[in-house]
């Protein structure tokens, strides 16, 4: 069963908060990881690994560059999650 979009956003916000210290309420679908949320390319790898674990999803390295906004990541996770 696919994950609920709101639940994924909430979980992703917690991950970004843990890694970059951004308040969870600021992690919105239209925000860019690098430009708005202080997540550089190294921290993005941490976000991806944490998201894979939390949402039981595989995010291949090739796919990471396409995840520019929080919305991109939420959509990918909702579409590909196994849980």
């Amino acid at each position: 069963m696919a994950q609920d979009k709101d639940a994924v956003l909430e979980g992703l916000a917690e991950i970004v908060n843990e890694i970059a210290g951004i308040p969870t309420e600021d992690v919105a679908l239209d925000k860019s990881f690098t430009d708005d949320l202080d997540v550089d390319s190294l921290s993005m790898v941490e976000v991806v690994v944490a998201a894979e674990e939390r949402f039981d999803v595989k995010i291949p390295d090739d796919e990471v560059k396409n995840l520019k906004t929080v919305g991109d990541a939420v959509d990918y996770i909702v579409a590909n999650s196994n849980s």
Partner: peptide, 10 residues
């Protein structure tokens, strides 16, 4: 492998 921090080298 996956859990090694990407910040390790810096």
């Amino acid at each position: 492998v996956r859990k090694v921090s990407p910040h390790t080298v810096p």
